[in-house]
Design a protein around this nucleic acid. Structure first.
Lengths: 213, 213
DNA sequence: ATACTAATGACACTCAGTGCCGTTAGGGAA
DNA sequence: TTCCCTAACGGCACTGAGTGTCATTAGTAT
């Protein structure tokens, strides 16, 4: 479903076969989280339910917190490529808007699953805290693109601020989405992006660049 | 220094006297964090160094992660009041800029301490993750003000997005500050705010409000 | 059948955080 | 002074996440 990933695709012909997959573990765990809550579900519960040892669990996921993330890294690579392939004529914010919307596009059959997953990630304190670390890579992808496009260093104030802003816009839209069972995520994201649109205007960027030469 | 707090100010006349203070524990801990690193310092180390029992430590701070925060909640109350006292004539972004700068103003004697503290909070993964939970209250204060000022619900997309944006601006500025030993925090914050300035313009807000009546 | 190899799972360990409960050290009242 | 009341302390035992070590298992190739 969400985890297509590397499991089971091409197993090397040597050694014992893996006894489960990332996707399987993730789905089992999410079911338990929904049923009993995140905190009340122990890693041992998950391992038992999945029919593996507790120790083996930690060979699939570095922590309990990573379970609901699916293959975020692969999606993120997709966004990076999408950004890189944007035509230069397009305004920067429009490039970002399009790629970020693409990053958040899922087949309708997965909407409910995605909603439950994001509800966990944004409403369980432990997971919310952990999410910061994932979003740091997301921001980095945005910042790299902005930096390249504006010809500024990646760690410059402007790319970093724009990356934070994009993240904030997305998370605000996600909260709206989670709060309204009938809402469409992409519509909300689109609306949120229109709020900021071309907020960093060209003159400011030019002035900034020359003052930091 | 940073923790003026409630300790020692007016102890009720009954019962055993506390054997330490929040400020004392916090400073001791920060010293150990600087010397040996956050992860390598155990709660037991801190308690021993402070001359209290491990169990007592957890009566002062709910977790090891809370040690570097000082009395963030009191500062935050200050920012809430500052925002509430802003003259109505001032543009919204200007109100936010002024109050947020005020929130980040410290006496020069504390700059070095503040720098080391923030370096921990933003660069130690565990603390960075935990910071999300603190910043949620910070964003809430900003969102409340924006909502009041624009006559929108607090959980509306606009206040939430603006709150996220302000947070992002601040954190991007903080990163710049931490990366340059000679930089001035307030200057960087000011510069970062100028980048976004009056980004949510009046027409957009009006259109948004009427479409969500 | 045997050898090689990768995944597994059991065990022991560290550390954060919590519940429980007896102990300690203050101040007030007799 | 002595006794009492009370809040803070601190020891103990426990849960649960995460890690290092190592023997075992189950595949494939020879």
């Amino acid at each position: 479903m969400v985890l297509a990933g590397d499991d089971a695709v091409m197993r090397p012909r040597l050694g014992r076969a893996p006894s489960t997959t990332h996707a399987d573990l993730s789905h089992t765990a999410l079911r338990l989280f929904m049923e009993h809550g995140f905190d009340a579900t122990t890693v041992e519960d998950i391992a038992r339910e999945a029919g593996i040892g507790r120790r083996t669990f930690f060979r699939y996921f570095p922590s309990k917190n990573d379970l609901p993330w699916g293959d975020f890294d692969r999606l993120l690579e997709g966004m990076r490529d999408h950004l890189a392939s944007m035509p230069d004529e397009l305004p920067l914010m429009e490039q970002l808007r399009r790629s970020i919307l693409e990053f958040n596009r899922f087949p309708e059959s997965e909407w409910e699953y995605h909603r439950r997953r994001m509800d966990l990630l944004l409403h369980v304190p432990t997971l919310l805290a952990h999410s910061t670390l994932r979003y740091a890579s997301w921001r980095q992808v945005v910042a790299e693109h902005v930096a390249r496009r504006l010809d500024l260093p990646e760690d410059d104030l402007i790319p970093q601020t724009m990356a934070w802003t994009c993240l904030g816009v997305c998370l605000a839209a996600y909260e709206q989405w989670l709060g309204d069972a009938d809402a469409y995520l992409l519509d909300l994201l689109d609306e949120a992006f229109r709020l900021i649109d071309e907020r960093i205007d060209t003159d400011i960027v030019r002035a900034h660049r020359s003052s930091h030469a």
